[in-house]
Write a protein that binds this DNA or RNA. Structure first.
Lengths: 115, 115
DNA sequence: CAGTATCCACATTGATACTG
DNA sequence: CAGTATCAATGTGGATACTG
């Protein structure tokens, strides 16, 4: 049984999935792999996520120390940028592997199926 | 937008997570990496999962073609073994990377924290 | 042994409107 | 611009008892 940020996981794989699992977290991280992005830039990259959900997911990733939130202005309109922390950067190869396997499946299926 | 087994995913990472995401699927796959296991053997490896949930997760993995279910007896007591399909085996490096990153975090934290 | 059936609790995500 | 508030729907997982 492993512990991280107050949560307990029965397996080393559950720990990883507890941090990057869920419907949106890997998508966010995928877009932050090599660049900082603002909140609305992320929204444009992920047209089907709602504001509320994106906001919640960003907070969870921030709470786990995977991404950092930098604020550049004190009054509206605000400028906020999200990027990987050093700890978050240790996930880069994993996120890429996840993306690659997804691509591999898409490839495989686009070849074997018409639809 | 990618499609797999009737589900749509907005990103290649979501596709992967759609297949191996959730609380238990990676744990199941982790235990099936290098061997076949029976239903009750899996339960012993995962003491905190309920019968119903394990059963549902196994069905989903089977439906996605990741694992196969082999039945060896026709009458109770049944003997059923679960193992990776050839398609499922393409996930082996990914599952190992997920486990490794989890281990890395456990290591990191056991060194920096007392509890 | 290997599950299913039933019922339920909680977590996650969404839609929409609104704010500093 | 970068969110939050509110309400609701859906999904995911759990407890327990039962079955072929």
């Amino acid at each position: 049984m492993h512990k991280f940020n107050g949560k307990e996981y029965p397996c080393c794989t559950s720990l990883t999935m507890g941090i990057i699992g869920g419907k949106w977290k890997t998508v966010i991280l995928y877009h932050l792999l090599d660049k900082k992005l603002r909140y609305n830039e992320l929204r444009k990259e992920m047209p089907t996520v709602t504001e509320r959900t994106l906001s919640l997911q960003l907070k969870m990733l921030e709470a786990d120390g995977i991404i950092k939130r930098e604020v550049y202005t004190s009054k509206p309109p605000l400028k906020v940028e999200y990027s990987l922390t050093d700890f978050g950067k240790t996930l880069i190869p994993l996120i890429q592997s996840i993306a690659n396997w997804g691509d591999f499946v898409v490839e495989k299926y686009s070849k074997s199926k018409i639809d």
